[in-house]
């Protein structure tokens, strides 16, 4: 008895799911960090909240904190949004995966250095106060979904299917 290989349709649907999970998570994280979901009152100070979290990790040079605190959330929104929509899926997935792995390493370094700092994950949307190994595992799983799209392509309902392999 042989196990039949999954049909192309099922694989494409799974790839779509992977796109939505990894891209959607990053899109949400970026939007919250920029204050795009929290109403106008939150807009002025939202990037500052992320900058303060970033600074407490002590991984980014002091002078680069403002630049990074604007660039990273917008990168999350752009790459995450493109991945969900299926525009240049492989390239979007490459950026999403790289960012998630970078976040994972940053969080791991916080735990390994035994630092008492706030997570800042998802802009504090889920009230995740401190960095835990659970935060790291979550990021790792999300990056795995991104890596699958990077290798296999966008799958179903991709606005701009990408036939170019890396």
């Amino acid at each position: 008895m042989t196990i039949p290989a999954p049909s192309k349709t099922i694989v494409d649907l799974l790839l779509l799911l992977a796109r939505i999970i990894s891209g959607g998570a990053l899109l949400l994280a970026g939007a919250v960090k920029l204050g795009l979901l929290g109403g106008v009152a939150q807009l002025p100070t939202a990037p500052l909240l992320f900058a303060l979290s970033l600074q407490s990790f002590k991984l980014v040079p002091h002078s680069l904190v403002p630049v990074v605190s604007y660039f990273v959330p917008w990168c999350e929104v752009v790459a995450g949004g493109m991945l969900v929509l299926g525009v240049w899926s492989r390239q979007s997935a490459a950026i999403v995966t790289a960012m998630l792995l970078a976040f994972t390493l940053a969080l791991a370094s916080v735990l390994l250095r035994d630092m008492n700092v706030d997570c800042g994950c998802f802009g504090g949307l889920f009230g995740e106060a401190k960095v835990t190994w659970g935060s790291i595992a979550r990021n790792f799983v999300l990056s795995a979904f991104g890596a699958v799209v990077l290798v296999r392509g966008g799958g179903a309902i991709a606005l701009k299917p990408d036939a170019i392999r890396p």
Binding site: P44, Y70, W74, C75, A79, S92, I95
Partner: peptide
């Protein structure tokens, strides 16, 4: 291109923020 779009949006945003 994706990174450049992100950088451009970040630059505009950092100037446009009220505070």
């Amino acid at each position: 291109i994706l990174l450049a779009i992100s950088a451009a949006l970040a630059a505009v945003d950092s100037v446009a923020r009220p505070t």
